[in-house]
Design a protein around this nucleic acid. Sequence first.
DNA 1: AGTACTTGATTCGGTTACCGAACATAGTCT
DNA 2: AGACTATGTTCGGTAACCGAATCAAGTACT
Lengths: 420, 420
Amino acid sequence: MERVRKGERRSDPDGPRPLADAVLRLIWRERRISRASIAESGGLSRSTVSEVVNEILPTGLVNEVGLGESRGGRRPVLLEFQDDACVILGVEMGAAHVAVALTDLRGGVLAWETREHPVRTDPEGTRALIAELADACLENGVQEGRPLLGIGVALPCPFDPALPDELSTIVLPAWEGHLGLEGVGDRYGVPLMADNDANLGALAEHWWGAGRGADDLAYIKLATGIGSGHIIDGEIYRGATGVAGEVGHTAIDPQGKPCICGLKGCLVTLIGTPALLERAGELLSEHPDSVLAGRGFGIAELEEAALAGDAVAVEVAEEAAGHLGIVVAGLLNLMNPSMVVVGGDLAGLGELLLVPLRETARSRTLVSSVRAAEIRASELGPKSVAIGAATLVLKAALNDSRLFRAAETNATGSVGRREK
Amino acid sequence: MERVRKGERRSDPDGPRPLADAVLRLIWRERRISRASIAESGGLSRSTVSEVVNEILPTGLVNEVGLGESRGGRRPVLLEFQDDACVILGVEMGAAHVAVALTDLRGGVLAWETREHPVRTDPEGTRALIAELADACLENGVQEGRPLLGIGVALPCPFDPALPDELSTIVLPAWEGHLGLEGVGDRYGVPLMADNDANLGALAEHWWGAGRGADDLAYIKLATGIGSGHIIDGEIYRGATGVAGEVGHTAIDPQGKPCICGLKGCLVTLIGTPALLERAGELLSEHPDSVLAGRGFGIAELEEAALAGDAVAVEVAEEAAGHLGIVVAGLLNLMNPSMVVVGGDLAGLGELLLVPLRETARSRTLVSSVRAAEIRASELGPKSVAIGAATLVLKAALNDSRLFRAAETNATGSVGRREK
DNA sequence: AGTACTTGATTCGGTTACCGAACATAGTCT
DNA sequence: AGACTATGTTCGGTAACCGAATCAAGTACT
């Protein structure tokens, strides 16, 4: 078990408490653990652990919950992390919808609200909608007195946390380069933090979903656009300017269709949602017996048809898997993750997508350990990005427990909202 | 200026000294700095800095070298890092040659020895050759009494430092999976550490060459094979199993020539050294007036001809740049480094290679900040890998100065060799 | 030149965050 | 019952810092 990183001398009594935070993280990770086990796995003395734990207990994040099994001596007092001590809001801004999840401190979704909205063109309405859905989540999902820890926001565009006020004007021109969500955080008196949607999907799958235990993973989000998020050594990888993961515009076929980006044959022109629907339409002319024939259909219907074994839908999915496999192979060769998680529109197809995807990817990768990387479908499905947004806040609080302390003072008898 | 990471409590008097190491690193980085400036930029008190510096001075790694300019008060005593306090051996094992560099603590090459050798098929002879060249370097390049800090080794195959005894049997079958160089380290009584050659090329360019200041960079090594090394956040990135950077087998043309790896149209089948020579041969039949016509030529002659403006050679280089550009574009989109450094066989062509490379790469990348990544040629040329091997040792010592202390006790009056 | 002020370096006492030893507690094993 | 073992707490000790005071050596103003 890795040693706890010990703290440095503090001059400021309100400063960070590295050791207390490290112990809190350990308890969080183990869920239930005794003081003696903390000392052992953290490389600390029992006296220090006692001291630190007694500092943590009054926060309510950890409780003593009875005794464990004896290992030949006195039975240990079990400490348990209280997953419901706080709640977190995770907001997903899509290109054309908003979703809000309310989670506990273990990634569990307590409430979920989503609505279609022209996010790209209506910043003011989007801000109001986020507040509305957040209120709804807090009213439906919160038990009395549970403080709100913070709000995480997933953005459908590149985002550099180093420059939080510089939003990409390419994807969201109407937003004029700034998010303007400070008001939402102020409304509840909690911190607000943001990141790119694919990054947060990757984070969620790493913490709670298909990617548990994989410290180096790539998450590929298939939708209208195609992006990837990368976890490297357990942390979100953003690249030099925060725009890593623009995997959708990898050129597959130099002679392919022109893309909005100005290039030809980008992955997104082949397997972006519009391309999939168009391809299905093409195939329908040869297969008038398909269940999709003669009616309008969207990606949900296409997915359903594929699962039902419809020849056209299956063909579309297999072609998409082939194209995606080429890019995944390049990704494996270059970055050598231990896992690739596929999320978004087609992830629900499961093995129908994964089998041809794995075959293409593995036939195009060289080194055996690269080929050994697991390729899986998202476990969290459409909620992964919003859950990841909430996880961003949880991660920050576990790294600096002052966020927990700030939230406690914020607990209200009402739904957690604070009238200022 | 970033704060120095303060030390944890030590129970072991021979344990690591994080603060002393951090101060030493700061002095190394600034080269000349006063105690007061260390306190300021490290976020420490002057009293602590005095104490720590007085602990460092007796090691001889840092000396007081006179007074600096007054800033309105007493003139500061300047401390200077002694770049020549130790020497380091950097060994490059290629597929068919061995090179050894002796460097100081600032990446300066004090001696350089290289010889052709069938490394792949002759492990025992290679080990003896490494020892021979190392001896030669120490005899030529070392001033009396300079201790040897350690030996770094660059390997022409994937290497996972977590499993140092499992060598890829694909690239080096005759080595039977283990390096067997412990004897060389023992011979001089110093530690020996290894890594992949492209990783070490990246490290060298990041520390001393074209990549200085770029905390996220990719280094692409063009040779018989093609590999890349990646620096992420200032550290070598190895991926989950230590084989990241297998960029040579990215598929460019699914209908292309078969590659030794079993795929078709890999980058290496288009711009690996043999492919370049073959392509030049093809073009010669149409251009009998080329300076290359009617004689045998290797990559050095091809490079020379291109620099002289020979049409065939220039055409080969430009085609190669185009193929490489496609892969570089994918790399930029995926990993968003701030710089790409091209090293190896063609790097000497300079702008002749870089201009078409930049054009292809930039025309195939989307986000403006990705396109802003600089694409440069290696500054360290053929020595970069061996220098990087030495840098691996330097880096380790700067992270744990006990290595320096161990080396001091090892100083000999002779060439640094120790008869055991 | 003399004086006030500034910056640099050292000394020394104080504080913090840890450890270790001793002890109380509560279990198992024979 | 007695020996032994593991858990948790108390308490004194100490390494690794800081801060204030002091000495040192420069600049700036009068």
